[in-house]
Write a protein that binds this DNA or RNA. Sequence first.
DNA 1: CGAAGATACTTAACATGTTAAGTGAATGCG
DNA 2: CGCATTCACTTAACATGTTAAGTATCTTCG
Lengths: 152, 152
Amino acid sequence: MRDFSRSLPMSLLRAREAVMRQFRPSLRAHGLTEQQWRILRALAAIDAVEVTELARTAFLLGPSLSRILRDLDARNLIERKTAKADQRRSMVSISEKGVKLMASVAPSSEAIYAEITRRFGARKLAELQEMLGQLELCLASSDAGDEITDNM
Amino acid sequence: MRDFSRSLPMSLLRAREAVMRQFRPSLRAHGLTEQQWRILRALAAIDAVEVTELARTAFLLGPSLSRILRDLDARNLIERKTAKADQRRSMVSISEKGVKLMASVAPSSEAIYAEITRRFGARKLAELQEMLGQLELCLASSDAGDEITDNM
DNA sequence: CGAAGATACTTAACATGTTAAGTGAATGCG
DNA sequence: CGCATTCACTTAACATGTTAAGTATCTTCG
């Protein structure tokens, strides 16, 4: 069997960890985890979203998101209110305090990203992301175990 | 600020999740998590290793590994014994039962990997892994925040 | 209308990620 | 030798990943 340290899952895991290791100290200094930061960034780009849509955007599972939103709400970094039309839906938005926190983190975050880009090369980075996107696409909505059946 | 869904960390996260989604059902059917499988695979390749070395190989943090080894030991999938020369060190090896479990999981695991390779293309896969390795290397042992100082 | 089903989210339970602190054993050095 | 330091690992505490079950609301259709 293949040397598993050279397998695709391990390559992806190590690469991502190498990248995140750069960001974590800065986020931690601001009292944020990687996932909390993802949520704030997703919220900053829009006015308000439903929880399900936010989960899709921030790439978090529902249960994780529920817990994190509870925490962010308790810290007054976000605001929530149930939708008028559908009482099941909860609309989430970033608060004033959340915006300020983002503003304080963004500079170092941007700097770190720029440094990574500089080291790896902007062109290569674009190529890498293109390939990652293709990989994701070619595995989308189908298990490699059972074939795609587009006629059922 | 950059659309964070197109950032490198998110690209890597989504790509890895797309890949792991293929494997998880099979592993789960055999009562193994991704991390437990990594450990068994790492152990299968060698005779016995220290915990610290195993953590490096399986790319797990010490505390996670401690817990998982406790569990795998309770399930008799591995064996442990303290080193003679140094009582601090614990030597870990895969058990007979562990080897059998691996043998029962390996076929479907191999098949899934082969299918991923077929879909994405063997050449592209090699290129992708090459780039991931370079990325990892160019970020190794240094924070993108503070420059490398190789003269201290 | 009203019961069955679907939907949006939350809770629960267990496994791992992550950092800090703890424990016991080896090492270095005066 | 003896004691401070280092080392290998474990435990603790909290946050998230993952699957299953639960809750409230909405929709559908007889």
